[in-house]
């Protein structure tokens, strides 16, 4: 395992100068993952914050081969590249050992890109699909997605006297990917960088479709001070809101167990999108969210022990 110093000395594949917001989790996630291996790479981006902010006219921040295609298409587009690469390699026309990474936000992965993701996993392409999950459509101005947690405020799940923000729980995408019986899938968070980089290396070294779901806080959409990104990630993991685990050939492995499992309110109260949940009338929503986190955590522990 590389030290932080070694990682930092590797050539940046996503260079500085891009226009992602201060405190954005997405670029931290992507830089760590791309530093995990030395192979040349083809990166695909679905429409989203990462795509828009790293390719602002007339610049690009990408030092890899790069494809952007419209919102729903990244998994299918990279599937085509990977399949062609294998054919070319078979015929000796390519000799280098490439890696393929498809990147989407939660909107481009959980929602509109879901069908393409599922098809890609089933066909068995050798590629890593990375979802940087910031839990809403941030690029278009904070609309709910199926990754948005219960009770979160977005512009299409507004808070009022009747509605407490989003009225549905999150989709458990990582578990859905695991149900495709892929050789490697994991959940990670960039404040645990050793864990994340290790997972990225495992995924990129696996001969088959792999998947990483990585939490990427959004200061604008979650409404917190940009200096607190790492603190919020820590709270997401220590409250078990975002557990870190991997599933290797069907075996569930828990990668981190907090010394003390904090109440989910500790994670929520530092974010403006959940401020209304601390009103007395929204207490049932807060309790439902805690119950959901507890239920999923217990289920994860059972799976990891099985």
């Amino acid at each position: 395992m590389a030290t932080l110093k070694e990682l930092a000395s590797r050539p940046e594949r996503l260079t500085g100068g891009h226009r992602l917001c201060a405190g954005c989790g997405a670029s931290i996630v992507v830089r760590q993952i791309l530093a995990a291996v030395d192979n040349p790479m083809v990166v695909g981006c679905a429409t989203g914050c990462l795509e828009v902010a790293t390719t602002i006219y007339p610049y690009t921040a990408w030092r890899t081969s790069y494809i952007h295609n419209a919102f729903e298409n990244v998994a299918a587009t990279i599937s085509g590249v990977e399949a062609a690469y294998r054919a070319l390699k078979r015929r000796g026309k390519v000799t280098e050992d490439f890696r393929f990474v498809a990147i989407g936000g939660d909107g481009g992965t959980y929602d509109i890109g879901f069908q393409a993701l599922s098809g890609t996993l089933e066909r068995g392409h050798r590629l890593l699909y990375l979802c940087y999950d910031n839990q809403a459509y941030m690029n278009t101005g904070i609309q709910r997605s199926s990754a948005t947690p219960l009770g979160a405020e977005t512009t299409t799940s507004p808070v009022g006297s009747v509605r407490p923000g989003k009225d549905r729980p999150r989709k458990d995408l990582t578990a859905i990917v695991v149900a495709h019986e892929v050789p490697y899938a994991a959940q990670a968070a960039p404040h645990r960088w050793r864990d994340l980089v290790g997972k990225a290396r495992k995924a990129l070294d696996t001969d088959g479709p792999t998947f990483l779901n990585v939490l990427a806080p959004c200061p604008r959409g979650w409404r917190f001070d940009p200096s607190r990104t790492i603190e919020i990630l820590t709270l997401a993991v220590d409250t078990c809101f975002w557990p870190l685990y991997e599933v290797v050939d069907g075996k569930w492995i828990l990668n981190y167990r907090p010394k003390e499992k904090l109440p989910v309110a500790e994670f929520l109260k530092v974010q403006g999108r959940f401020a209304h949940l601390f009103r007395a009338d929204n207490r049932p929503v807060l309790e439902a969210l805690q119950a959901e986190v507890d239920r999923k955590w217990e289920a994860l522990l059972r799976r990891a022990e099985a």
């Binding site: 101005g141 609309q143 512009t155 299409t156 799940s157 507004p158």
Partner: peptide, 20 residues
């Protein structure tokens, strides 16, 4: 029934609040 996309998103945002 909507889906966010620039430059139409405000129609959905406005109706998310007003239509209910």
């Amino acid at each position: 029934a909507g889906y966010p996309i620039t430059p139409s998103t405000e129609v959905a945002e406005f109706l998310a609040e007003r239509l209910p």
